[in-house]
Design a binder for these strands. Sequence first.
DNA 1: CAAATATTGTGAAAATTATCACAGCATCCA
DNA 2: TGGATGCTGTGATAATTTTCACAATATTTG
Lengths: 228, 228
Amino acid sequence: MSDKRKIAEAVITRLSIYNRALGEIGKEGLEIISSDELGNRIGYSAAQIRKDLSCFGEFGEVGKGYFVQDLRDVISHILGVDRKWNVALAGAGHLGSALLAYPGFKQWGFNIVAVFDNDLAKIGKKWESIVIQDISELAKTVKEQDIRIGAIAVPPQVSQEIVDMFTSCGIRAILNFATASITVPEGVKLRNVDLATELECLSYFLTNEAEVRSEVLGKIKNSSGEGG
Amino acid sequence: MSDKRKIAEAVITRLSIYNRALGEIGKEGLEIISSDELGNRIGYSAAQIRKDLSCFGEFGEVGKGYFVQDLRDVISHILGVDRKWNVALAGAGHLGSALLAYPGFKQWGFNIVAVFDNDLAKIGKKWESIVIQDISELAKTVKEQDIRIGAIAVPPQVSQEIVDMFTSCGIRAILNFATASITVPEGVKLRNVDLATELECLSYFLTNEAEVRSEVLGKIKNSSGEGG
DNA sequence: CAAATATTGTGAAAATTATCACAGCATCCA
DNA sequence: TGGATGCTGTGATAATTTTCACAATATTTG
Ligand SMILES: NC(=O)c1ccc[n+]([C@@H]2O[C@H](COP(=O)([O-])OP(=O)(O)OC[C@H]3O[C@@H](n4cnc5c(N)ncnc54)[C@H](O)[C@@H]3O)[C@@H](O)[C@H]2O)c1
Ligand SMILES: NC(=O)c1ccc[n+]([C@@H]2O[C@H](COP(=O)([O-])OP(=O)(O)OC[C@H]3O[C@@H](n4cnc5c(N)ncnc54)[C@H](O)[C@@H]3O)[C@@H](O)[C@H]2O)c1
């Protein structure tokens, strides 16, 4: 059942999680895995996994399970990560530098090919082969370098400005680390990495649920936010 | 209608977002705001906001709206952020250092009071008043310093180990930055900050939806991941 | 070979979540 | 004063998401 209905964002998020798990499983040398076993590892139900996959096609072998490598290739293709993406980073401060130094992005196929700041002390400095550019060059560079994804690591007060710069030069996908309420035009996908919200959810849990829940401690549960 | 039913995690996440928006609105000097206007700013429907709040009580004034400061206080209390929380950080590498240097946490009431690593070159070094400790001291320090939240910024391969250390010394709330499939016991809340997943969702969007969506560009939409 | 076992893919049912729509109250305005 | 307006809180309704449960088919075992 792989017709082109609107797929829920939650499905995509889980696909990404399945994909990572499949990578780990592959490294262990396992060639085939059932939805049940995969689910146990990552804390989702077998039915959920099968339903999610069924949005895109039939990839399993009845009575057997899924070929780990094949399923991985399929999911990678669905996610569009069987290619490289060029990423621009705005803000070369503490967080921006950590992101730049992080080899994970490149490994996953997301290349930070340009970095922008407005601090004269930083502009012109190099990180590996990338020279930090003046923020005013953003639009030009985005076009020249075929950049499709923008990452935002500037202070909250200016984050909306940067979003606007990105969207007006054609960027359709933005990863925002600034803790601010920002807005994008329709047709642009924004994902927020919002530490304040993460911590506040933990705080809520500790305040309102932790005691009650801990009574039933013992069983293992999932790894994706619903640990209780 | 504020009885003690199980509240959906999504509600808590939004509460946190409302709270931040209320902070910004307060700074602008506005004293009262309607659910409708608040919703417009952050991309949620007025009904959604009212429903979410109604899980906890009645905080608005009919015909008027919500007192910005009062609602903020109420939400802060619900989230349990009208107090301080002690946080332990495992891993003082690139990301760990950025987190340590980030003043936001303290401002929000989350104090990183202890940092752990297993690299002898790092152990003993100071960041402001915090000395990086050997990871083996984790349990002792967590108890001594009344630490309730653990943050994980170690390499993926060892992240599950650290989770186990945290949970076995009583930590019930964990914020994980390592890109790995990890698991926690029931009664422990885990939130993952998973950049791989974030980027892969963007990649999916660019690959499968961006062109179609961009036809209807123009209208402003919400700021929380559903920008399309 | 037949019976037992494993596992998928998927309709149907259940559960959860979001939206609608409006009664009811407060405020404003003439 | 009284009618128009603005906005909340919520029951009802709609939509979405997850879980269930099983037919269909492959594999293993004796
Ligand atoms: N550091 C963290 O661990 C962390 C954690 C959570 C959230 N954040 C968020 O990430 C963002 C960056 O945090 P940080 O700690 O790196 O801050 P930072 O101050 O170290 O870096 C911000 C950088 O943005 C640059 N900048 C400022 N205005 C700019 C503009 N108009 N155009 C281009 N560049 C500009 C600054 O020169 C600086 O280099 C902030 O919004 C912060 O809330 C950071
Ligand atoms: N840096 C980033 O921007 C970034 C982005 C996304 C995800 N991450 C994830 O965050 C984690 C940390 O990334 P990083 O870039 O800071 O890596 P890093 O290598 O710079 O830092 C890891 C730190 O953990 C320490 N460590 C290793 N094993 C340990 C153990 N058993 N006990 C205690 N400490 C130990 C190391 O000594 C090092 O200081 C990784 O899991 C990575 O996947 C990082």
